[in-house]
Design a protein around this nucleic acid. Structure first.
Lengths: 231, 231
DNA sequence: GTAGTTGTTGACAACATTGTTCATAGTGTA
DNA sequence: TACACTATGAACAATGTTGTCAACAACTAC
């Protein structure tokens, strides 16, 4: 769309020789040359950092390029357009999130200690890599977001099946699937929320200390377990 | 900082007369003139809509001006700079949030039905006006955010005092303030989170229907109450 | 009516950002 | 070594955004 007018071709070479001999005192600036694959990987890595810190709309070609140590046309060369880069980095991040969450959830088989471990693992997946922030950015900006097929429904179903068995063993009356879904949603909201603003919330509530986060999640584990298995 | 060089003064009037007589076929475009106060109010109102939908960094002077129906220098005239406008609209939104939350929380005195009403009121305050999104934007972008002195600690203290009395009346052993704080933080995370992506989460968990949100919050009320008063 | 005050606006400048072009540098291959 | 191929970067173009300025226009005071 841009540059519709005619283009005067000047052809100023890198080691320009405007007048005659000198003026070409520029160091050739040794170029590093990577194969396309590793170049794309480096760019995606840098772009993901920007995605975490500034969101999709905060990704700037020049900043990403500078982070990698290349010029911004190189980024465009490898991705075609800024939008394609954003889409690529979002897809990559979402796929990574999906993988991490599946991994974190799969390890749990409904045990008491394992539920705690699972919550910590999920929180860790959302928190350390900043992927919780990515999910929140995408939710706020209304990006496609479709790829977040973490399918809470699957988590609900798995949890509900385990819950049914456990309650039957204990002689407790069964609970509805909706109840289980509410438990899962609450856990998801709590973990995602605290991965974004957990520290702020906790200190704002008067809970100082480095272990305020773990203590809150341990407490959350007990509440969820009591809701799942109790009464 | 801009325009440091000399400024060639051309002084082309609105009804320009370049050559001689004609070419001045422009309607004078009847200006509307407001007093500074209402102009500022209109601009802030338009800017807040942009704040909710696009976040602080998504506020554009020209867009805000177009929404109001004025030119963008008018916005600059009233606020000095874009940054000042952003700061003003954020302060206004945060003050509004603070007021709404205080109002929503104050109505509750620990009763069972009143806790439910309070949660609904808080959720409503965060959801309908988009103020939950504002809080999340500010948290993600790391804006000053200081004005969010909703002071969860105060809510915790009030809740804890009521809780102590109630548990004593029931003959239950007292709970720690940390436990109360955890309950409040969980409620805050759940309400704020669901105000931003509640619909997404619920449908993703397999909970369809228009009343999925109210039903989840009603369930949350029971869980919180059971934690506060139970055992 | 005249003059002063002030909200308002078009034109412009400076800068940022995205995208394009093309010569060059680096890599692999015959 | 000669050649093809491709990643790279400097220069450029186009557009968007913020900020400046002088003049205009509406209103008030006299």
């Amino acid at each position: 769309m841009l540059s519709t007018t005619t283009n005067k071709i000047v052809g100023n070479t890198g080691t320009c020789e405007v007048g005659g001999v000198s003026t070409s005192r520029r160091k050739p600036k040794p170029r590093v040359r990577r194969d396309a694959e590793s170049a794309r990987a480096l760019i995606l890595e840098a772009a993901e950092k920007r995605l975490v810190s500034s969101g999709p709309s905060g990704i700037r070609l020049q900043e990403v390029a500078a982070d990698v140590g290349v010029s911004h046309p190189t980024v465009l060369h490898h991705f075609g357009s800024r939008e394609a880069l954003v889409k690529a980095v979002c897809s990559r991040a979402l796929a990574s999130i999906h993988r991490e969450l599946i991994e974190a959830i799969r390890a749990s088989s409904g045990d008491e200690a394992q539920l705690s471990a699972m919550l910590e693992a999920v929180f860790d997946a959302l928190s350390t890599s900043g992927h919780g922030r990515v999910l929140m950015w995408l939710a706020l900006e209304g990006e496609p977001f479709d790829a977040v097929d973490v399918r809470l429904a699957d988590v609900v179903d798995a949890t509900h099946a385990m819950r049914k068995v456990k309650r039957h063993e204990k002689g407790l009356e069964p609970k509805t699937r909706e109840d289980t879904a509410h438990v899962v949603v609450l856990a998801a909201l709590a973990l995602l929320g605290s991965s974004v603003l957990g520290r702020t919330m906790l200190t704002n509530a008067g809970l100082e200390g480095d272990d305020a986060g773990p203590r809150f999640r341990a407490w959350l584990t007990r509440v969820l377990l009591r809701q799942l298995d109790g009464e």
